[in-house]
Every structure is written in structure tokens, then in C-alpha cells.
Design a protein around this nucleic acid. Structure first.
Lengths: 234, 234
DNA sequence: CACGTACCGGATACGCCGCATCCGCTTATA
DNA sequence: TATAAGCGGATGCGGCGTATCCGGTACGTG
């Protein structure tokens, strides 16, 4: 079973599995799949022990296939980050800059929303090794162009800046994290609010896509113990 | 030396110092002062050992005066949270609801900005004991009234909700935390953006109060190791 | 001044947690 | 069936935060 919104195809077997015995290759895939699920559900805080357990193999097996957690992260998140890059590039290709900006934010946030590991990697910039950092650095220049284009077309306020796109994501990420188990897509409400503060075309307010939280739900969200719930890894 | 923006008067000696020997009473005050500084600078993660060291006393002394960290937190933050309540109440007293809303957010965020401990306590809802929770719960009803009043006066979009005020703070808190040592008041830029997405009176954009980050600064902020720097406690 | 007690200090013990290894056992494959 | 590749998980290690303990110190009272 996969976490909602995720279910990456980890079935790209045969990348490094050539010289492996049949069972070894299978275990490698099971480890990658388990790591994929666990990182998405709980973030990068999960241990190789957790991953091994979830994969149904021993810890030793995990450490034979991957020297440490970093390596595993790099292996898994290189392509996912590339997916974010692709989304940005695709947004840039849209001739309507506002639409590009909008869909970039919506899609990028949706991806992060469904994968806590990805979210942490994009927020932190220290996590992950060489390969991951490399891909991450590919995003900035695209965002720059995206914002420049939007300003050229006059669809965003003139004092808007490329860096704003980064920090808006950071801010909304915090909301996502806090409300994950109360109202998972509440962040979209605040994305809309933000966008209404940015766009030039503002005769009317954009309709807010998500209901606000009730006082009880709000209290629940703010009262929820932070730093995850690794107990139920099963 | 105090942390910028803070410097609470911890000099309300004589609350529980009656039966204490002179040196003991003084140590108690020094502990409170040290805790005040350290919580503000580094958040609630600091240990009683850190606090004792900063106060220039032994760890044993710290544990004799306060059974544990919770007790110390309660002692210190009850009044600070009350200060936030007061700010909210004061905002509610303003006949101009928009101005009230604005100054509430500005002041509350400014207080949180200058005190990482306060910020964490307001974000978390689990931290602190009875007394702190009690004060915290006093804020919600005031915010409700604040928002209701603003909607009645027609100064905010009709679909705005009380809970939005909470989550805007949460979101901006994340920005504050990330950019603290690069551009400490950058959060105000995003507060303005948010407010421009909320107010009804929107012929022109509000002038953004803070310059955006350069690409280098942005990278520095996102690359900065999270979860504080308790090494330099001195 | 001198004595007893309240107080001090910080080395130390404890528990927890995550990372990683090691080595006796299992199983694929030739 | 032999043998080497692979497996598993108990175990050791190191770091960190909490809290205690007890020999030493100094306040302040008689």
C-alpha cells in the first residue's frame, strides 16, 4: 500500500541489480520501496532500521545494499527533485506567465504535500548528498525566468521577486505540515490568499478552494505533537 | 547582554524569594535571567545545564530551584503570553477594525520574532504546563471577535476566517525562523503580501517594507543548518 | 567569632536513540 | 552437493538530555 498522492514507480529494477543474486536483487527493490513509502509518510527522520523492518528484511541487509541513509536518499530523491525541475520548466514553457506561475506553485506544492521527504529536502538544502544538491540548484534559474517573465507581462506586482516564490513555498509548507491530519489540503487556501496579494488583475477575490478550520480543528492542529509519529511503522 | 528586541524585566524579585538566603535568592534571579535570554535566543530546546552555565551557577543549583524545565518555562512564559493577549485585546479596542487587525499581527509577530521560545510556545500548544496553556486559550476568543468585527466593517474579504489569522502567523513564523540570521525582518514582506490578499480596499498595492533576498542570501537561508546552534552558549 | 545549616557545584549515573558492525546461519546457483 | 553470496538481528558504540548525589562552601545567627 502506498501513501496517498505518492506511489512512485520504484519498479525501475535493473539499474544496479545486474550482478546480484535473484533474492538479493529482490531485497534491494523491497528496500527502495519501503524507503520510498516511509520517507513520504514520515519524512527523512526514519532510520535504516525502520526501513529494513518495513521491507521485511534484516538491518544487515539494508546496510549491505546502502552504505548509509544519505546514499539511499540520493538514490531515491534525485529523480523526484528532477520531477520538480520538470514542472518548473513546463511552467516556463506556458506562454501565459500567470498561468505558468500558478500551475508551478500548485503542482510543486502538491508534490511536496504528498511526500514529506521531498518537502524536507526542498526546505533544507543541506539534506541529501552531491547528486541531490546538484538537481536542487537547477531549480533557481528557472524560477528566476518564471518571475521575470511574469513581471514583463505585467501580471504580478512590480515589486515581486524571484526569492518570494521560494519563501511562499516555505511558508505554505509549514501550514501543510501542521494541518496534515486535520485538513490535508488546507495549504491551498493560503496559497490562494497569497496569490491574491500578488496578481495585478484583482477586481475580484479568487474563490477560496478549501473551507477554513473550525475552532476545534484549529486547536487540534496546533496541539498535535510535532516531529512525527514513527511508532506505527508496523 | 540581552537579545535584540527582548530584554524583559526579570527583576520582579521577591515573588518566591522570601524565605531564601541572600545568595540563593540572587542565584534564582540569575537563573531566571539566563533562561530568559537563552529561550529567546535559541528556543525552548536549551537544557537546564546550558541555563545554569550561562547563569554562572552549577547544574545542581538549577535543579534545586526548579524541579525541571517545564516549571521554569511556565514561570517565565505565563506573563509573556499574557502580553500577547493584551496586544490582541488592545487591537480589539481600536474602533478601526482593519487597523486593529494590522497592529495585532504586526505586534504579535514582532514579539514572536524577538523570542524564539515564545514563538515555539505559540506554534505548538503542547509545550508548557497548565498555566501557560490556560493563558494561550485566552487568545482564541479575542481573535474571533477581531475577525468578526473586521468582516462586519467590510474591510476584509467576506470569506476570511478567524482561523486564518492563526495559520498566517504559523506560516510567517516559518519564514522568520529560516531567515533569522540573513534578513531578520523579512517576514514583514510576506505579511504585507498576505494582507494585500485579504483587505477589501485594494486599488493599490501596499509598499513592501523589506527588500527581497538576493539569490546568494536566499541560498544561504535555505542552506543554513536547522534546529539551532546551541554550541556558542558561552 | 564560631558553629550549624542552608546552599552550592559539577562529576557522574542513567536512559534513550540512531548508526553501524559482526558473525553464525541460510540459500541460490553451478 | 558444494561453495560462495547473501541474510538477520543481537550487539556495541557514541552522543545527548535529565537528574542525582555528596563533599565542599559560606551565610547569618547566637
Amino acid at each position: 500500500m502506498c501513501y496517498p498522492h505518492t506511489c512512485y514507480g520504484v519498479g525501475m529494477a535493473g539499474r544496479l541489480d545486474q550482478g546480484l543474486r535473484k533474492d538479493a536483487a529482490e531485497n534491494r527493490e523491497r528496500l527502495l520501496a519501503a524507503a520510498s513509502d516511509l520517507f513520504a509518510e514520515h519524512g527523512l527522520g526514519v532510520t535504516l532500521n525502520d526501513i529494513a523492518h518495513r521491507a521485511g528484511v534484516g538491518v544487515g541487509t539494508a546496510y549491505r545494499h546502502f552504505p548509509n541513509k544519505e546514499a539511499l536518499i540520493d538514490e531515491l530523491f534525485e529523480e523526484r527533485l528532477q520531477a520538480v525541475v520538470d514542472v518548473a520548466q513546463h511552467a516556463l514553457d506556458d506562454s501565459d506567465a500567470w498561468n505558468g506561475l500558478l500551475t508551478f506553485l500548485e503542482r510543486a506544492l502538491y508534490m511536496r504535500h504528498g511526500d514529506r521527504g521531498l518537502d524536507e529536502i526542498m526546505n533544507n538544502g543541506v539534506l541529501g548528498d552531491e547528486r541531490v544538491s546538484q538537481v536542487r540548484d537547477r531549480i533557481a534559474p528557472i524560477i528566476t525566468k518564471l518571475v521575470t517573465k511574469a513581471k514583463d507581462q505585467g501580471v504580478v506586482r512590480p515589486d515581486f521577486d524571484q526569492s518570494d516564490l521560494i519563501f511562499i513555498q516555505l511558508a505554505l509548507s509549514a501550514i501543510t505540515e501542521a494541518t496534515r491530519d486535520v485538513s490535508p489540503d488546507l495549504y491551498r487556501r493560503y496559497l490562494t490568499l497569497f496569490l491574491d496579494g500578488i496578481r495585478t488583475d484583482r477586481e475580484v477575490f479568487t474563490r477560496l478552494p478549501v473551507k477554513p478550520l473550525t475552532p476545534d480543528e484549529t486547536h487540534a492542529a496546533m496541539t498535535r505533537p510535532r516531529r512525527s509519529d514513527l511508532r506505527d511503522v508496523s
